[in-house]
Design a protein around this nucleic acid. Structure first.
Lengths: 240, 240
DNA sequence: ACACTCAGCGTATGACCTACACAGATGAGG
DNA sequence: CCTCATCTGTGTAGGTCATACGCTGAGTGT
């Protein structure tokens, strides 16, 4: 499966000529997911959008989940030879921006459960590499850099994921009246810290978020993490 | 649905006595999810584990997803009157620890797609409140505190979620040999930063992770975020 | 030329969620 | 105390999915 993603799958030479290809199938799947969401990606629908029967797909893909994995990796492709700005802080911001754009363009990616192999697929690897490049000038050791890459990518993915999940439909129960009604159960003694904020409408996904997603919040967390990395970098330099 | 979670659902007084209850159903669902994973939670199986027919559940829950939402909120209950240590940094660490334990005890929680309403359910609210309590002494304003709560909870959830996803089964393709084979496609010019680390086995989920999950990495990111908050706090105090 | 291999198709099976109608229980109002 | 609207749990049935299996015919290495 990793082999397929790297384009190393060996096409058999014996039988009839293949009319489909991994690329076509993956592309069709992505198109459907982009338009109608991951739930609409059904073996049937992918096949018929290509003009084939459902079972034809199984000559190329051993399981639906394998198709999804391939779709993910294809969807998170980084623009090749992407140049990162300087200094490292700007580079990491740009890197996070790349991921954010990927996820915003293909939000369904974040709903696909991950297995270990996906970490070895080409675009996942490329993304990690780019993150490491961004941190080239930092004084962290390799293990720390890898942990930082993981932290940032996980964080960005999770925030965009949350944003999309919450945005699926403005919920009928998530209104000002509902907030007010909750004022009765959200008593000061049970929820000392939260009560005032909730009544003021200051709550997750409340204003100003509805329009702009969780952009402000994502930005906030991102800057904290970068600050944290900066401090670590300084400490490591200082002690050497 | 939010009403059900808050125990404010009005039981009708007209018909036959109810033999089931939301609590029993949710509990049965949790038990199955804990034992066999979220995929095993099927209306049929929940019902039969209680000795009823599938359709009986729909008198209490309008949709399977509603049951899952209720299960989540029930599963993330914080020990009541949980005391947080001092100072704020220790408090936030403890808060994250609480979440981590929740997610480790009920990993399936992280696989349930979230809708806006879930943010209004009692234990979700309690968790936010606890996070805010932990930050009481910080100089951040309310919006910043809320963003910090969101950042930390999202981050911890995502890391534990990733950990569980990757741990489902040690993948057959994720071995030392596979790494070596990838050495051929992971060329220095395409992946300048990564190559040496990959060959040294220093990669996400590689050693020392297999045994201990992503604990080290989670800890790393957490400390960076806390450092970032500390810096922001200092800046806000300094400029006042 | 032959035999083996493989592509795409049709059919079938077994989960699963959930809509709908039914029979009996139960309590509110006269 | 009677009556009837209301609600409970049940049985059935329909629709959607993933995918196993066997078939036909195409193309290739020997």
């Amino acid at each position: 499966m990793v082999a397929i993603a790297w384009g190393m799958a060996v096409a058999p030479s014996r039988g009839p000529r293949r009319e489909l290809s991994h690329e076509k199938i993956v592309e069709a799947g992505i198109e459907i997911a982009d338009r109608d969401g991951l739930a609409a990606v059904t073996m049937q629908r992918v096949a018929e959008s290509l003009g084939f029967t459902t079972m034809a797909l199984y000559r190329y893909v051993s399981t639906k989940h394998e198709l999804l994995d391939l779709m993910r990796d294809a969807a998170i492709a980084v623009p090749p030879r992407k140049k990162l700005p300087q200094p490292w802080r700007e580079a990491l911001r740009a890197w996070c921006q790349v991921m954010r754009e990927c996820y915003r363009a293909h939000p369904w990616v974040l709903a696909i459960p991950r297995r270990q192999e996906v970490l070895l697929m080409p675009n996942a690897v490329a993304l990690v590499d780019l993150g490491l490049q961004a941190m080239a000038e930092l004084a962290l050791d390799e293990e720390q850099k890898m942990a930082a890459v993981l932290t940032l990518s996980t964080y960005v993915g999770a925030m965009v994921g949350l944003e999309r999940e919450l945005a699926v439909e403005p919920d009928a129960e998530y209104t000002a009246e509902a907030f007010a009604a909750l004022g009765e159960v959200i008593t000061p003694e049970r929820f000392p810290a939260l009560r005032s904020m909730l009544l003021a409408g200051e709550y997750i996904g409340g204003p100003p978020s509805p329009e702009q997603g969780l952009d402000t919040e994502l930005e906030f967390g991102l800057e904290r993490i970068l600050d944290g990395l900066e401090r670590l970098d300084r400490e490591l330099r200082g002690s050497s």
